[in-house]
């Protein structure tokens, strides 16, 4: 058993939250720069230039990338030979979120009871934590600051197996079309295909952790990602929905086995401010 101190987890989470909210990843920046070169709409290009300038300003560490500093979505891949000591795991994660959102002047966006009172918890906790037990003696932590506008455009479709590949493409294209400018395009489109309802949704979100535009290692999925990207960019929605050829920067899909009766399709949209950071302890 390898011991990892809860305090170390707190410290790491706090650092990742801070970094994610101030420094847009190089992969996202490169994708936005490419889009700025190829976008046909003058207004679309102007929007993309503003986003690149915004990322530069945020990198100075005074103003976060977006005022919506997100729900802190935390993926923990816990090696089965890891023993966490000196505190409870969930509390250690929340303490890291609490510290980062207070000390780094990030907006606290979580409300305690969602359907009537909606009182802000004041410290952006609780984090949404997804824990997986994996082989080894390491702890892999990925933190995503997930904005509400794009998250609100998520979809779960329990498709019929007969709808097949084309059914998936059509459902995604329609979802992006209906979302229009609301989820802050250009988007990264996360897809979870197969599994059960909740597993599809989780994999759709997890797919967003992949570097932007890195295709699936599975050639068939990579082909599906390419075809969906082309169809989505034919919609004409463009940056912030003001018209253009760049509606999405990338499509990331994960697939898994499903029941003979089912073909779940989960769609999780990521805005252009794709903020996530990882560390391994």
């Amino acid at each position: 058993m390898r011991e990892i101190k809860a305090g170390k987890i707190t410290e790491t989470i706090a650092h990742l939250c801070q970094q994610a909210n101030y420094e847009l990843g190089d992969d996202v920046l490169a994708a936005l720069e490419r889009a700025e070169q190829t976008e046909k709409s003058p207004l679309g290009r102007a929007v993309l230039r503003e986003l690149l300038e915004n990322a530069q300003i945020a990198r100075e560490g005074v103003f976060p990338l977006c005022q919506d500093c997100g729900t802190a979505v935390v993926f923990l891949d816990v090696g089965q030979d890891v023993h966490i000591v000196g505190g409870e795991l969930q509390q250690a994660v929340n303490e890291g979120v609490r510290q980062a959102y207070a000390q780094s002047y990030l907006r606290k966006s979580m409300v305690k009871q969602p359907f009537t009172e909606r009182v802000n918890t004041g410290d952006n906790t609780p984090a949404v934590v997804h824990t997986e037990i994996v082989p080894g003696d390491r702890l892999r932590i990925a933190v995503m600051a997930k904005g509400g506008g794009a998250e609100n455009m998520s979809r779960l479709a329990m498709l019929k197996p007969a709808q097949g590949r084309e059914g998936i493409i059509e459902t995604v294209v329609n979802a992006v079309d209906e979302a229009g400018g609301m989820p802050c395009p250009p988007l990264i489109i996360g897809l979870g295909i197969g599994g059960t309802a909740e597993m599809a949704m989780l994999q759709a979100k997890r797919s967003l952790l992949r570097p932007v535009g890195q295709p699936s290692p599975d050639p068939e999925l990579a082909g599906l990602e390419r075809d969906i990207l082309e169809r989505v960019n034919d919609l004409g929605i463009g940056p912030m929905g003001l018209g253009g050829r760049t509606t999405a920067l990338a499509v990331h899909a994960l697939a898994m086995p499903a029941h003979i009766a089912s073909m779940p399709l989960a769609i999780n949209l990521q805005c252009h401010s794709a903020r996530h950071r990882e560390a391994v302890l």
């Binding site: 503003e50 986003l51 300038e53 915004n54 300003i57 103003f63 990338l65 400018g181 912030m240």
Partner: peptide
Amino acid sequence: LVAVGGAAALIAR
């Protein structure tokens, strides 16, 4: 009118 979503640091200026 629309402002550019996610250009929040730029707008703050």
